[in-house]
Design a protein around this nucleic acid. Structure first.
Lengths: 245, 245
DNA sequence: CGCCCTCTTGATCTCCTTCAATGACAGTGG
DNA sequence: CCACTGTCATTGAAGGAGATCAAGAGGGCG
């Protein structure tokens, strides 16, 4: 059994010790995936959701014409594959961006969890809403902003999310995405990602050294970003307290 | 108390009579909004979610630069404003597209519901996941398809959703959106929406008469759409049955 | 050493935007 | 009843952001 980082949860809801324990022991043994390995392919029947313990992974939709759109870049501590819980067959393909460790949670086990700890259902609900807001913001930025703005937003989003798991030091973090993958996230070609990235570099906003990136001027970048980050509400009033359920 | 159409629920989950009853009596008295009236503005504190009983409404994100992106076009039977449940202040503005009737559900009442009927929490969870998939598909089509493809997708999406509430006859339905609004949904200018719409018309794929639209060749349109519709899973295995919770 | 993947840059093309003008139509006040 | 106003659809012309095509360079790894 592997340790699932609960940072994401602790920041938002107060978990009872029993709830924290059951979340930690939810998944099956971790499986190791090599770079570019497929964790769960789209159109497969949905039997589980996945917890990303280590490494990066992507969730992508394949279009009938052969293109792919990366919907979300997952970092350690993320739950993956949950949208497809509502479908006959999976909507998205989960792929390892770097080598990564993943723990699967069979849907049957999830059901046991919901029966035994109904309040955790509410907690999951909260997390899905947060993902939904993230998607809404992505739609807004894809519909209304330039390549430069979208790229800045992606970098800031990664910066902020990586900060919560403590792998950002002074604006610097590891960015294991190829420019092609960044293009697939932003809806751009890799060529244009390259030009835009170089532009940011010439402007002195970022510095790149191999797969590490430095956001030099966070304030200026946030000014450029088409959308400010959202302020989440910890322990929302509609969520029953532990003991209440 | 107004009747909230439960079609959307019935198709996906089996509700116990008690559950159906509590859902129907969930909202406060309906409020009437005139065309273009704001139902709930963004950045307002979040005190309720909303059930759309009659008419059309939009959920839109305002960008700091003054632009707006319509995230979702709501039709009767939709729940609105739920993403912001996770936030301090609302992310999106809800606006009446046509005159419409809306019933608010205070978050406190929602909490009582979750305590009394924990399984309904799971049902709501399911619905949010469905919305999330819809957003993922929108991201995919915004990132990877042309104006024509996106417009076709929107028309088919509306066609299919309106079909479930029985207001489509032989490919014909009422489309009360201005071309400007359609542009704000698709991330296009109204000028280009106009040209694209006229193109579809010249191709014999659609016919417009005032605010009514006819999808003449559904098969051909589905061929053009960048993404096929999703097959939802009724009564998913992770959802506890009535009685189990 | 040689191969493949990724980054980089230039040249050209095109889809969509921007700007601008016109007409149809509904509502409104005289 | 008609001028007046605002909204919406429509169309043309010009401009630009990003795509496409093509080629070279660097680097990890068999």
């Amino acid at each position: 059994m592997q340790e699932f980082p609960l940072t994401r949860f602790d920041d938002l809801v107060t978990l009872s010790p029993a709830e924290a324990e059951v979340l930690r022991s939810l998944g099956k043994d971790a499986v190791l995936y090599r770079r570019n390995a497929v964790i769960r392919r789209d159109r497969e029947p949905v039997g589980a959701i996945y917890m990303l313990l280590e490494g990066w992974a992507s969730s992508a939709i394949r279009l009938p014409n052969g293109q792919r759109q990366i919907i979300k870049v997952h970092i350690p501590g993320d739950m993956m594959g949950t949208p497809s819980m509502a479908l006959e067959t999976a909507a998205d393909t989960l792929t390892a961006i770097t080598e990564c460790r993943v723990s699967a949670v069979p849907l049957t086990r999830l059901r046991e969890l919901l029966v035994a700890y109904p309040r955790l259902g509410g907690v999951l609900f909260l997390f899905v809403q947060i993902e939904r807001i993230a998607l809404m913001d992505i739609v807004a930025s894809m519909g209304k902003s330039s390549a430069r703005e979208r790229l800045v937003r992606l970098l800031l989003d990664l910066h902020d999310r990586l900060s919560t798991i403590g792998v950002v030091a002074d604006g610097t973090f590891d960015l294991p995405l190829t420019q092609e993958q960044i293009g697939d996230v932003l809806g751009l070609t890799s060529v244009h990602v390259n030009r835009t990235m170089r532009l940011l570099e010439r402007e002195g906003l970022v510095v790149r050294e191999g797969h590490r990136i430095v956001l030099c001027d966070l304030a200026a970048l946030r000014q450029i970003s088409p959308l400010p980050p959202r302020r989440l509400r910890a322990d929302p009033p509609w969520l029953p307290q532990p003991g209440e359920l």
